[in-house]
Nucleic acid binder design. Structure first.
Length: 616
RNA sequence: GGUCCCGUAGCUCAGCUGGAUAGAGCAUCUGCCUUCUAAGCAGACGGUCACUGGUUCGAAUCCAGUCGGGAUCACCA
């Protein structure tokens, strides 16, 4: 089946036969021939002149001759400046089309028997989701879909940071200021409701802090701790955290709440459960809107004590060491990292300790070979350390760990900052893009005959395609600048552009059903147009693209591929008629081609978490 | 300061396991809807691929250095 492999093998064979050189077939790279030259794939012969002392053009000509005579699928060749351009027989393309036009699963690889866990999103429970989470969610979902398509069994999980001082702030503010209000009673989406109390806490805290700064106590603090030449204003800006921990009434109340939570106070636990439940309900709505889901939720309140036994075990094996004050460390300086603490001198764990514990727990629970953490790049170092430690501990899954690191999402004005109110809320963003899509659709009027709910479904599909594609087309590790106006664009290099290619094909296929057409006639189609060959060449690449995207954990490769394919199709659609083609053979051939393209587009977009409408 | 990531058109991004004349979209300008959905197509404009050096027949791509931008280096999570 794999024609490129056959060409590679034949090339190696030719080199062996003509020049007595053994070159592994996989070392022979064939690249798609540039459009301005005649041919489908190009072999660059320059690398061979090391072993074969001949002019590149001569080698290319001899190889071309050999291939044309020995390999039936090579119809012709030409040589341009050391580049051997190979023309494949038309039959190869026809056979490829016959093979794939009826295969909705084309591109997906068979199960490989391996299990991979993908952890993504992993929010805190004191605030609603924002744009940064959206990038995380889309990457995580898409990466997991791509891994599935590459043959893995995938377990999607998130770990929720449901404990700590942050949620206590929301709880305390609710207790103090809400008068028993609930999301239902005030009609606010429940995660936003909780987030509002977090904001409320911060507001009251700032007021309290500002008032305190006028007090004699503050004067004394300033005089005692002030650094040379530091202004009073700057001093209190830097002093905020210390104020919260040592002087603040609200701060001590929040800390007290955390203590009571840790002590298992039933009242506090009940409130905590209530607040978190509100947040989860809100998150679920957002996940549903985005079309993502999880197989398992982990909660830090359950896992934050894990890993202590591993530290103990590592200590005994000499992987960790104990300082005189009792704290436990690892020294990673020999691999260019630092010393890192794993247990405080008081015996309590630090954050990374629980990561050790959860990693092992997950392995034991699921028997996974690989684990992908979708986490922003500010934690690159953390994961370097974590993975190195797990390797040293000899964990069996240690070589299958991967940090899918992605760059921060910034606005044209810079980083999002809650203090400046520039956080882009996930729900607001989705609502906005849906509004734009709706306005656009109404203007076009193409959906007017459909029932209202179907219209809304399609509008939602278009809107989310725009948003998702806009985010996911950027390589994960790159920082991205999110321009709100561009994220709602529906034309150009966008999700809807690709949907439109699909919709056009569906429309043609519907029309084709109405007329009598002999699909078998495609076999008689000869002299394919360049664009048709180019489209087939793209389709042929699809399985490899999936494999590569999985190996590199990079959904943007799929996005780029889908856009490219759609672009070629739009051009083809414009330049040639399908249903009014010159012959029955051409009609059938193009119809099959269009169908194959629509399947591949649909699969590719599915891997990005984007749905395809039948009309738009 | 150490480590890691980024720097490509006015803007947002592809291309990076070395191959032919560096590509898209947006923006600006110009054409194309009695013909399968114009959310489309075609054209024009737009480049010192940050800089310098090296390796190579060949470098946006690999190596070294420089300059810019970001992240990180907590007994925080």
């Amino acid at each position: 089946m794999d024609m490129l492999q056959r060409v590679q093998l034949a090339c190696a064979e030719a080199i062996a036969a003509l020049y007595g050189q053994q070159i592994p077939a996989t070392d022979i790279t064939l690249t798609p021939t540039r459009r301005e030259f005649q041919g489908d794939y190009t072999l660059v012969v320059f690398p061979f002149i090391k072993w074969i002392k001949k002019a590149p053009d001569a080698i290319a000509a001899e190889l071309g001759d050999y291939l044309k005579n020995h390999l039936p699928i090579i119809a012709d060749f030409n040589v341009v400046k050391g580049f051997l351009n190979l023309v494949l027989s038309e039959q190869v393309w026809s056979e490829l089309l016959e093979y794939l036009y009826t295969k909705p699963n084309y591109g997906r690889h068979p199960a490989n028997g391996q299990k991979v866990m993908v952890e993504y999103c992993s929010p805190n429970t004191n605030k609603p989701l924002h744009l940064g989470h959206v990038r995380n969610i889309l990457l995580g979902w898409s990466a997991s879909k791509i891994l599935e398509a590459a043959g893995y069994e995938v377990v999607r999980v998130q770990i929720i940071n449901d404990r700590g001082i942050a949620i206590c702030k929301s709880m305390l503010a609710w207790q103090k200021y809400a008068n028993g209000a609930t999301p239902q009673s005030v009609g606010v989406k429940s995660d936003h409701f909780v987030g509002n109390y977090y904001v409320e806490f911060e507001k009251h805290f700032r007021e309290e802090y500002a008032a305190w700064q006028q007090s004699p106590e503050a004067d004394k603090v300033f005089e005692t701790y002030q650094k040379k030449g530091q202004s009073r204003e700057q001093f209190f800006k830097d002093f905020k955290d210390r104020y919260f921990n040592q002087y603040s009434i609200l701060g001590s109340e929040a800390a007290e709440m955390l203590r009571r939570w840790e002590a298992g106070d039933p009242q506090v636990l009940a409130l905590w459960q209530q607040m978190n439940q509100w947040v989860y309900d809100g998150f679920e709505q957002t996940y549903a809107l985005l079309g993502v889901s999880f197989d398992k939720y982990y909660y830090e309140s359950d896992t934050y004590l894990l890993g202590k036994d591993i530290v103990e075990e590592g200590l005994q094996r000499g992987i960790f060491y104990r300082e005189t004050d009792g704290s436990v460390w690892i020294n990673l300086e020999d691999v260019g990292m630092d010393k890192k603490v794993f247990q405080r001198s008081d015996g309590t764990s630090v954050y990374i300790t629980q990561d050790l514990g959860t990693a092992r727990q997950r392995y034991q629970e699921y028997g996974i070979e690989r684990m992908v953490y979708v986490v922003a790049d500010e934690q690159n170092y953390h994961f370097q350390v974590l993975f190195e430690v797990l390797r040293r501990l000899g964990e069996p899954y240690a070589n299958g760990l991967y940090h899918l690191s992605y760059g921060m999402v910034e606005l044209p004005t810079g980083r999002m900052k809650s203090r400046e109110g520039t956080i882009v809320d996930a729900d607001d963003l989705i609502a906005e893009v849906i509004n734009v899509a709706r306005a656009n659709s109404q203007e076009r009027g193409t959906l007017a005959d459909l029932p209202q709910d179907e219209q809304e479904t399609i509008i939602r599909q278009i809107a989310l395609a725009a948003l998702k594609f806009h985010i996911i087309k950027v390589q994960p590790k790159k920082r991205m600048i999110f321009i709100p106006e561009e994220s709602v664009d529906l034309q150009g290099q966008t999700g809807p552009y690709i949907q439109n290619a699909y919709v056009r094909i569906q429309s043609v296929l519907r029309k084709a059903e109405e007329i009598h057409l002999n699909w078998d006639a495609s076999a008689q189609y000869v002299h394919l147009q360049d664009l048709e060959k180019e489209l087939l060449r793209s389709l042929y690449e699809f399985p490899d693209i999936i494999k590569r995207a999985a190996a590199e954990y990079d959904p943007s490769l799929i996005a780029g591929y889908a856009y490219n394919l759609a672009k070629h199709f739009h051009r083809f659609y414009h330049d040639y008629s399908i249903l009014r083609a010159e012959s029955e053979a051409a009609k059938a051939f193009r119809l099959k081609l269009a169908q194959a393209i629509s399947q591949v587009l649909k699969t590719a977009m599915d891997l990005l978490g984007i749905e395809m409408p039948e009309k738009m």
